[in-house]
Design a binder for these strands. Structure first.
Lengths: 115, 115
DNA sequence: ACCCACCTGCAACCAAAGGTTGCATATCGA
DNA sequence: TCGATATGCAACCTTTGGTTGCAGGTGGGT
């Protein structure tokens, strides 16, 4: 079961730089490619490309203001992304617990045969 | 605050093919590059490279058995990955809630001034 | 023992993604 | 108007995900 996740949304937040960008936008409020690049280890152009990716999947939106483009997080879309993260996490977690339970059952069974 | 996430671990599960591979290994139990590739839209060699990536970050381990290499999920490491997913999710979720709370406060304030 | 089928690893090659530099354009402010 | 600043676009490089082709082990019949 492939968990039916939106691959575009996931891989958008899969990049460490983009994840940090979202962190920054949430912490400091809306920002521009230039302002973000000053707090990141990459150039403004790289940040600009990442913003384009985030914009394409709807995680951020641009608000043109004079000579600068101020980006802000789309809260609804980010909430959707968070839901998917926890969804996959929950799926894996459930499987891990099931595996552990089966392992314990086998363990008990082996003990019974041994006595 | 950059959430101090292990970027290698995160980007390992960031790839959709690798995520599906983990799903398969959890659902069907240990498997080989060949067996996994039969249920995936990529070639055996591609799967083999992905397994190498997952192995490098400790999410899977190989058990050489005769002519085949059977891979199984490292449950502890996967649990760690799941924890990071939910950690980032929780961080963003908290910020979203805080933003919403502030927005509502401003809303209330504006209403008071208006009356 | 032999041969064939099967699983694997390695190398060459390709395309897309992330990153950089350089340059041209547009806007704000003194 | 002129300089400083913010942006966009293009060329180029490197890494990564993907492919094909080929050679090397291992297992199982005959």
């Amino acid at each position: 079961m492939s968990t039916t996740v939106d691959d575009d949304l996931w891989s958008a937040v899969g990049d460490p730089v983009r994840r940090t960008m979202i962190d920054l936008l949430l912490a400091d409020g809306p920002g521009t490619a230039t302002s973000l690049s000053q707090e990141l280890p990459v150039t403004r152009q790289a940040v600009s490309k990442h913003l384009a990716v985030l914009d394409r999947v709807g995680l951020v939106h641009a608000a043109p203001a004079g000579r600068e483009r101020r980006y802000h997080v789309d809260e609804a879309q980010l909430a959707r992304a968070v839901a998917q993260l926890s969804s996959v996490g929950a799926t894996w977690d459930a499987r891990l617990r099931r595996i552990k339970r089966i392992a314990e059952a086998i363990e008990r069974n082996r003990d019974n045969e041994g006595e």
